[in-house]
Design a protein around this nucleic acid. Structure first.
Lengths: 249, 249
DNA sequence: GGCTGAAATCTTGTATGCATGAATGGTCGC
DNA sequence: GCGACCATTCATGCATACAAGATTTCAGCC
């Protein structure tokens, strides 16, 4: 197939980041032509990229319809968390089983970075690093397949958090990461599993237990910001306007 | 994307079956042209099919190289089983949690079919049905994602069994399926988990604890069957000859 | 006789074109 | 003034063409 063509990978990463940071809102249309023009590649390659993103759950694509940024449903979100929790627990077991002291150092290094980003007031960066912590943990099992699955799950969770979660929801229970590493170091499987299980519960609750739907919140924001400037709206926020149309459909 | 074009799906299913039944040996080249000609479709669609098969782990594809039927390594095989075991156990938990009496009837129906096939002396069919039992079980969790993962895992296990396993390895521990359903019906999570865990151990052992590498066994078969007809070999078994070349690389 | 190297051949990587099916905007009727 | 219908526009499904990179073959040489 078309593994690591630089252009293709670039487009894939760019779209992924844009989706996760909600620079592209859920429901935004992703026409092949336009993307191709932007990245300087033909629709053939764009299609491959979109297919991959669809497989990762970041893009919704139905036949004969323009692909859109995925809008995870609450049900899907729960499913993702359910699988993730199970796999995370297994990962903890496996990492302890194959533990090496160097792991502890590396993980703690990651935690320090994350903490630094948080203190710097960059919650998005901190959230991304938190995700990478979990992915790295999965890689430490030495099981490539489980790592691949976890990568997909963490990515989807990020989108879910962005869609459903409260602002700064990614901060949830980041202390537990430290506790987890301590338990791993100590080789205390039961404790580590309990921490991970609880951690997943916290993250899921923050992600899904929302009172205000993200949608209406965003709408409210927009209206508040543009109230009184009705005439200028189209010019001021063309992207958002386009997105609303795409989403409504 | 290109979801359910009938031709595409047909080709995908056909290749999948051919690979799992080892009508196409691991290492066999899969040139886009040839496949396209066979199924009456262009390389564009073949590419999509091959990409999907690659994602499922049934096809190896490196850039600029002809795709081949996957040759799982022992290490990969272990990884697959490791993930599968963890997920299967979680599936048992979830199915019990969401149990409905109708589930029992359906699962027992599947077991009867499987048993019938076995008695009819069709181990391949029985093996396929055994796989479908596990997939169905995953679907009964109501979690689509976990079902998708399990589908991939069962498929890959089938290939692994075909490559590494002894003949009839798929028969392994099929009684345990009945015991499992009984435990599920009874709502006995601990028992069901224990049975599933043990079952996975049995299947894995049968699949991987092989004394004779499948490769040399196959070679032996061929030689035995064609001994003395050296000159005629290329004509008699062109496919196999081609495969050997492809595999050696 | 086996090995090195280059031509010939086979395949894939990618772009593009045409046909077909959706989405949109405008108009007509109520 | 509002809603349904139709033409236009747009975007995708798929095939094909061409360029570039592998692979194989064959010849010449050590």
């Amino acid at each position: 197939m078309s593994r690591p063509s630089p252009r293709t990978d670039l487009a894939h990463e760019a779209l992924k980041q844009a989706i996760l940071e909600q620079a592209l809102e859920p429901g935004t249309k992703l026409p092949e032509d336009e993307i191709g023009a932007h990245f300087g590649m033909s629709r053939t390659l764009v299609r491959a990229v979109l297919a991959k993103l669809q497989a990762e759950g970041l893009v919704d694509a139905r036949p004969k319809r323009t692909a859109t940024v995925a809008q995870p449903t609450l049900a899907e979100a729960r499913e993702v968390f359910e699988v993730r929790r199970a796999l995370e627990i297994e990962i903890v077991r496996l990492v302890i089983k194959r533990w090496k002291p160097a792991f502890g150092a590396e993980l703690e290094g990651m935690l320090r970075e994350e903490e630094a980003a948080r203190r710097r007031g960059e919650p998005k960066v901190a959230g991304r690093l938190a995700g990478e912590f979990h992915i790295r943990l999965a890689q430490l099992t030495g099981n490539r397949l489980i790592a691949r699955y976890m990568e997909e799950l963490v990515t989807r969770c990020s989108l879910i958090l962005a869609v459903f979660g409260q602002p700064h929801g990614a901060d949830a229970g980041h202390d537990e990461h430290s506790e987890l590493v301590a338990a791993l170091r100590a080789g205390d499987a039961d404790a580590a599993i309990a921490i991970m299980d609880h951690h997943m519960g916290v993250v899921e609750k923050r992600a899904l237990a929302e009172e205000t739907p993200a949608e209406s919140a965003a709408l409210g924001d927009v209206l508040a910001r543009y109230a009184g400037a009705i005439g200028a709206r189209d010019a001021a926020v063309p992207l958002v306007a386009a997105q609303k149309r795409g989403r409504a459909k």
